[in-house]
Simulated assay, not measured.
Amino acid sequence: MKTIGIGLIGTGFMGKCHALAYGAVKAVFGDVPAPRLEVLCEVPSEKAAEYAGRFGFARSTSDWRDLIADPAVDIVCITTPNKMHKEMALAALAAGKHVHLEKPMALTIEDARQMAAAAAGARGRTITGYNYLHNPAITHARRLIDAGAIGRVVQFRGVIDEDYQADPELPWSWRAMREQAGLGALGDIGCHLVSIANALVGPVESLVAEMQTVHETRPVEGGGRKPVENEDIASALLTFRNGVKGLITASRSAWGRKSYIAFEVHGTEGMIRYDQERMNELHLYQNRGEVAEQGFKTILTGPAHPPYGEFVPAPGHQLGFNDLKVIEVHEFLRAIVEGREAKPNFTDALHFEEVIHAVARSAETGERVVVGLR
């Protein structure tokens, strides 16, 4: 396979990120088929044509079904609002296409399960857009844990905060509707934290949680206010399948926070700490040596932390958010070439969705919930 055809649905934040990543992946890594940017879909058709020219796609359409049916398209990238994910993904899988889907998978856990089942029986491969998992700092944290650098893991603590919904006068939008967005902070950003906890510690077995809607109404054009139907803040106490305990909290109303993903993995012999706002650093504490000299060591990512060196040959120059999507695309293309499952595929992402929906269910009932229980 020398080339592979790409179809992109959506041109927002993540649509542009996908276009940049598929355009760069061959130059960065070299060991994958060259992506052909074939078809871009957006509405109206004038906008589709404009962005096809900007992003470098050969053609444009305002009908996503035409994109999926196009024989030149091998991979369908879905970067649309959450409500559209299920129908588009199922149609692409039924057409034998590979599917690159942005998170969350769907509005409901039932829809996500249907999508995972369809993917399991489909010819095409799948991957979900959890690009933080591909940060060399986080993959190195996993290697440190596996090597016993902090002893036996006993606790995971994680926070993910942003302030894009902190202003009470921010106008009402589709993000406030369960029918359009599904869950709020959990579905938009909390699932990222769950994916990281899963990568470092393992699957979650059960949890007890609470949620809060900070701004219960938002202003609408023309006057008045409409209710917000989903959560601004969610927190949960976790029990992982391996017995490790954890704490996670997510907020979209945390003033001053800009993609703040921070976690600590505590072990019997040390601790690993990370902060996404300093995404090229990892902090390691080990209970070794002279007590008077103990402290956190800052590990600055560089070529010694693959695949950092594919982007730049010198430490300290740093990777960025869009680079993580290039690594994610590389993982997907290698999986397709090698005939294996990509990570994280729809089955992996289903667990992340089961966790966030368990958080919502526990918050509603006030009881501990077993993750994945139907």
Rank of each mutant, 00 (worst) to 15 (best):
I299A: 04
I299H: 03
L300M: 13
L300C: 03
L300S: 06
L300V: 15
L300P: 03
T301R: 00
T301V: 11
T301L: 02
T301I: 09
T301G: 02
G302Q: 01
G302A: 07
G302V: 12
G302I: 12
P303R: 04
P303F: 06
P303I: 09
P303C: 00
P303M: 06
A304G: 12
A304N: 13
A304Q: 10
H305E: 04
H305C: 00
H305A: 04
H305R: 04
H305T: 07
H305S: 01
H305K: 00
P306Q: 08
P306N: 02
P306Y: 10
P306H: 03
P307I: 08
P307G: 01
P307A: 01
Y308N: 00
Y308H: 05
Y308T: 14
G309N: 01
G309F: 07
E310H: 15
E310R: 09
E310G: 08
E310T: 13
F311S: 06
F311H: 03
V312R: 05
V312Q: 06
P313Y: 10
P313A: 06
P313I: 03
A314T: 10
A314P: 01
A314I: 10
A314G: 00
A314L: 11
A314Q: 10
P315T: 13
P315C: 06
G316H: 05
G316R: 05
H317I: 15
H317P: 00
H317S: 14
H317F: 07
Q318E: 14
Q318F: 13
L319K: 04
L319C: 10
L319N: 02
L319F: 05
G320N: 15
G320A: 13
G320P: 09
G320S: 14
F321G: 02
F321L: 12
F321K: 13
F321A: 07
F321E: 09
N322E: 14
N322A: 14
N322I: 07
D323Y: 05
D323Q: 05
L324A: 11
L324D: 05
K325Q: 15
K325E: 13
K325M: 15
K325R: 15
V326A: 06
I327L: 04
I327Y: 02
I327P: 14
E328W: 08
E328C: 12
E328V: 11
E328I: 11
E328Y: 08
V329N: 00
V329I: 10
V329R: 04
V329E: 08
H330V: 11
H330I: 09
H330G: 08
H330N: 07
E331L: 02
E331G: 08
E331A: 03
E331W: 09
F332L: 09
F332C: 06
F332I: 09
F332S: 01
F332Y: 07
L333V: 04
L333R: 07
L333M: 09
L333Q: 04
L333H: 08
L333P: 06
L333D: 04
R334M: 02
R334Y: 12
R334A: 00
R334I: 09
R334C: 09
A335Y: 12
A335L: 02
A335M: 05
I336P: 01
I336K: 06
I336C: 04
I336M: 08
